[in-house]
Amino acid sequence: MNDTVIEVKDLVAGYEGRVILKDISFAVRKGETFIVLGGSGCGKSTLLKHMIGLHPLLAGEVRILGHRIQGGGVAEREAAMRSFGVTYQSGALFGNMTLLENVCLPLESFTDLPSDARRLIAEMKLELVGLKPFANYFPTDVSGGMKKRAAIARAMALDPQVLLLDEPSAGLDPVTSAELDRLILRLRDTHGISFVIVTHELASIFAIGDRCIMLDAETRTIIAEGNPTELRDTSPLEKVRTFFNPAARQG
């Protein structure tokens, strides 16, 4: 159990008492790329938002590096919040700051490092995602793919052990999407970061996913768990096989 970075147990998620997901249990291991997948409206982003504490859990427990994100004390929640980074679908960069300032922001807020050090660290994070030459650009001046990479750099500013990415490939062309996939794999291999990625992009799922869970809008829970390729080839559920083989469904 020591290599578990995220543990979700019997989670029930929803808004204003309305249950969207139930009986959700899974674990993410250290250094793996874990995919949360499913069709539109099945609750992928809802699950992510509950996991990171943006919405109160209706029931169950989420632990990140052993710390409870909800249900524990303030100190435990803060420890949990410091241990992961998140990127959102749009990138969610602060428009009035340059990319460098965006990455510097968490370092300014949570460390006592001198400004030179903070700036160098931010530059190094931008270099990791290939954006150092654009450090002084504003988010409006860069492309969608660059925004996503800058968001990853900002999420990595405090060296979290887990990165959670919400639809990182959404709105990107296949080439940029593949570049982003390669970046994720490189960061996983060089820095040992575990990734939890919410996506329904099949190319990305097969390229980077070590393990995955598949959510279902009908049953509102996990209907499959395992390696994406194995699920595609051997899942007993037709719904799962069809998801991984859209061409077969059309044929």
Binding site: D116, A117, L120, I121, M124
Partner: peptide, 11 residues
């Protein structure tokens, strides 16, 4: 080690 140590080495 983390990014701050890497930055120190680079500095």
């Amino acid at each position: 080690y983390d990014g701050s140590a890497e930055a120190l080495i680079i500095e």
